[in-house]
Design a protein around this nucleic acid. Structure first.
Lengths: 125, 125
DNA sequence: TCGAAGGGTGACATTGGTGTGAGGGTCAAT
DNA sequence: ATTGACCCTCACACCAATGTCACCCTTCGA
């Protein structure tokens, strides 16, 4: 698949796809004419990257953890350095914090909206 | 409390406290000499702001939704414009997406680490 | 064969959060 | 009276993610 198609499939500007590649987050082959050529799975990959990016993780970190998240479950895990383990644990904990924070505020918004709705209905009676 | 104290309490650079104020996320009185003077509750506020910021929300949005999250449960909700409701619903949904994405990846990291640990133990036997 | 659509690289601009420094006040302790 | 810690404002700098533009090439259909 060429970059335009990938772009529409992922609703991601072409510019960013090239940027993600430059940052080592996605890979592409090249057609004889120099055009990028993507495999099917890259679509999911891009969506995952965007999700993580949108959740506030920098590309630097995403690049580090992506290889560990890749869904075609690696059969035998190659040499995980203690360094890598530390990074992963750290990021895992940071993610947990973010989740907690978001969850708390998500609930607060939900509660607020509920209350507002009740209020609105009440004012009609 | 003056800015230095707030800074240590929240482990937040003074620079950023002033920035958050400039963005309308926190408020301060002024002492006769021009120093900023914060009330106790601002500590929590700063932590909340940082959490949201760290989770990827821009100050613009935080500023909009903060008034709705403020814990001293407002007794009667003042005129919530339909506009505001729409914004809140939108942000709520975006937060839900982020939570989902982070949760998924958090689990993936956790699983990966578990597998790696098993692998390591196995190689000792 | 020509034009439009799509692709390539490279470079500069912008935005938001943050760092840092200059230049200058306040105040408490010595 | 001086020093040192703390505060003020203003301004420039930085980085990462993105937008945008210039300039050139390839493919394909009218």
């Amino acid at each position: 698949m060429r970059i335009g198609e990938l772009s529409t499939h992922t609703r991601t500007p072409v510019r960013l796809l090239r940027y993600y590649e430059e940052q080592g987050l996605i890979a592409s082959d090249r057609l004889p004419n120099g055009y990028r050529d993507y495999e099917e799975y890259v679509v999911d990959r891009v969506l995952q990257v965007r999700g993580l990016l949108d959740a506030g993780l920098p590309t630097r970190i995403i690049k580090q953890i992506l290889p560990c998240l890749n869904t075609p479950r690696t059969i035998h895990m190659p040499y995980v350095t203690p360094d890598m383990v530390a990074t992963l644990e750290h990021e895992r904990d940071r993610m947990a914090e973010k989740i907690e924070c978001l969850t708390k505020n998500h609930r607060a918004i939900t509660d607020y909206l509920d209350a507002a709705r009740r209020d609105t209905r009440a004012s009609y009676r």
